[in-house]
Write a protein that binds this DNA or RNA. Sequence first.
DNA 1: CACTTACTGATACCAGGTGTCAACAATCCG
DNA 2: CGGATTGTTGACACCTGGTATCAGTAAGTG
Lengths: 166, 166
Amino acid sequence: MMKHATLGNAAPKLPVLTEQNVESILVQHGYRLTRPRLAVISAALRHRHPFTAEQLVADLGTANGGAIGRATIYRTLEILAAVDVLTRLIQADGHPAYICDSPGHRHHIVCSGCGTAVAFTFCPIEELAPTLARDTAFEIHDHLLEVFGVCPSCQDSKRLPPQAHA
Amino acid sequence: MMKHATLGNAAPKLPVLTEQNVESILVQHGYRLTRPRLAVISAALRHRHPFTAEQLVADLGTANGGAIGRATIYRTLEILAAVDVLTRLIQADGHPAYICDSPGHRHHIVCSGCGTAVAFTFCPIEELAPTLARDTAFEIHDHLLEVFGVCPSCQDSKRLPPQAHA
DNA sequence: CACTTACTGATACCAGGTGTCAACAATCCG
DNA sequence: CGGATTGTTGACACCTGGTATCAGTAAGTG
């Protein structure tokens, strides 16, 4: 068994999501393109690692140079998740974070060291669901799956002589 | 492929966890058996569905008849999870809840209607992990998996004539 | 350009949870 | 059994992450 020699796309060739992509998706869904939303989109896309909502608040919030309200940032993240260009994931410490992705069902493997997340499209629940539904008599509607581990570069830094400067 | 005709134990024959079990497990791990802890254990075991920490606070907290501090309740839940008799799971609405289980790796399928959770021991990540590790070069350490659906009895109530009294 | 309506930001609030610390009480030891 | 020791407790303050409200603002439309 276990014929899935590849995982859909574990690391390579994820289509890049641009600001233009996101903007047109928003318009297609009937959302207005406002200055605060554009700023949130731009900031979210700049992050290559998962980021927390409060990080965006720190970047863009009225407390700092920015002029975007906390509520607006949360609302915009919610919209981006609703149109499927943003994934909300749970980090190893249990706290939520967000990451921009092209639309489509995917899960993430998240590094407990640096937070880097790699998406994969293979979903083991799809094949488990029928058995599970039969055995439990539940109707299955959704699931939550995150994998936690250590990324290659954090593995390397751990292997270094422990005489680190800190 | 897909030879798992059963899921370990999806619904039947879960060994029952008693107060005595939990108490001896705690002692084995070097924890003291205090009056507040016994009360939390007893309250937690009384719940047959997942419960939130704040529910226990409502049941046992100093605000009500009880005399157990909020912090103590949270700390005790943490201990019970550490010795593996309590699972912290995430409900469909994203909020955490707790449920008592005999020790062992398991996941839950949680009803979005009534909150009922059914445990299963089959873990699809175990077989996925090697492929994932190879494809991403991550060291895999842990994972989070919850399945959401509707339990048989909530399916029934939805099927009833929609002239509900509410 | 004016108007409709979605959107914004300030503020207050909530849930869920953690840190601190003096008082307390399980257990150990003799 | 009677302390002493040390893990544990409860009150309290505080924190993160997020939501509700609502008057004011600005996108998009004709």
